[in-house]
Design a protein around this nucleic acid. Sequence first.
DNA 1: TGAGGGCGTTAAGAACGCATCAAGATCCGT
DNA 2: ACGGATCTTGATGCGTTCTTAACGCCCTCA
Lengths: 225, 225
Amino acid sequence: MTRILIVDDDEPLLRALRVNLTARGYQVDTAGTAKAGLVAAGHHPPDLAIVDLGLPDLDGIRVVEGLRGWSRAPIVVLSARHSEPVKVAALDAGADDYVTKPFGMDELLARIRAALRRGTPAVPDAPVIRAGEVTVDLAMKRATGPDGEIRLTPTEWHLLEVLARNPGRLVEHRQLLREVWGPQYETETNYLRVHFANLRRKLERDPARPRHLITQPGIGYRLEL
Amino acid sequence: MTRILIVDDDEPLLRALRVNLTARGYQVDTAGTAKAGLVAAGHHPPDLAIVDLGLPDLDGIRVVEGLRGWSRAPIVVLSARHSEPVKVAALDAGADDYVTKPFGMDELLARIRAALRRGTPAVPDAPVIRAGEVTVDLAMKRATGPDGEIRLTPTEWHLLEVLARNPGRLVEHRQLLREVWGPQYETETNYLRVHFANLRRKLERDPARPRHLITQPGIGYRLEL
DNA sequence: TGAGGGCGTTAAGAACGCATCAAGATCCGT
DNA sequence: ACGGATCTTGATGCGTTCTTAACGCCCTCA
């Protein structure tokens, strides 16, 4: 689910945004001050941030800068001021859009859609992932191991697919379970152990000492390239 | 050189834009009608397009759609109309930004910079925090110390992650404990001491004299960049 | 100078996570 | 309905990680 963080101290607006965004399927976090916003972002990294420039404690531009220090999520700035230097400063600090109050909800939603649309690179990645002697062809739904093409069961393929879509990246237990089995199975880490054992037997040269299907104990698994 | 295509029939504005943009090192193409704009774009694919909605022959949204059919270059829409449905339509058609006339040249230039910045995948995706010989890759969930990649336990990674999301900033004991262990552990500063000792052993060259995992006595810890 | 608090370090047992195996249960095409 | 493949579930052994407690150090303050 797409996670949106709103940093604003305007209570009525906050409520309106929350209602509209949650109704459209976004998960919404809110913060009333700049500091609380940065803490919240650290706590739950957002996929998009909406930042009001007029905050009680710090200038909203500080929030933009703080987020840009580690996150590339799009940032939409809200402000009651038309002042051009302020707009320029906010955009150059790393904001992606600047909306002047008052604005219509539909416009803001459209701008959020536009920002998220270009945020996700639409999976332009190569359809075939190579990891040493292991290859995964996402388009063809085929995989090869050290001894050529491999026959995978549906669950095994699904698992491998999720890993291949995040090449080299660590994928947490929860994400794997949610994507393959569904949200209600998020605790069944046993499934992962069993099926990863089978996967390793099929496409690792030495299943006991895996080189590509790596376990990160307590966190998740990763397809090492 | 960055190539910008302007599709607008407002002659004075066109001249002003051309002067300002060329002065800043952009290569500028112009077209006075929608059809001419699409032809010009096909001739010299732009890195960014500025499209006025009020064109003599076709609605500017047609230009946006036409460009989006084959190009992913950012598109900034200009319009004299504040009408919200029009804004929504333009953004959903694939525009990246919407600027209402009259606007200041500095603002438009800032919005162009912002659009180009995210348009170029200059950094594909690297929320990587560098702190000297220590690096933390939040997306990959990987960390490296002076001797290359490091294996971290779940708790150690969680701690390091919180610090990395607040680069250079001081993070209080309470926040760390709440984030990693939960609100009811806010007083267990012992946990912090033990796990920070382990972290330092793994990624400080001289664990006894830490250079990056800094203690702020009585307050918290900080990831020194 | 002595007491106290915060910090770093260490060590040991408890708790947890992982790999593996094997036995049902379930799903599928024939 | 049958047989094979696949998935679920439980149990075991092993290694790792977390918790907890104890000790010594340094700094501050009385």
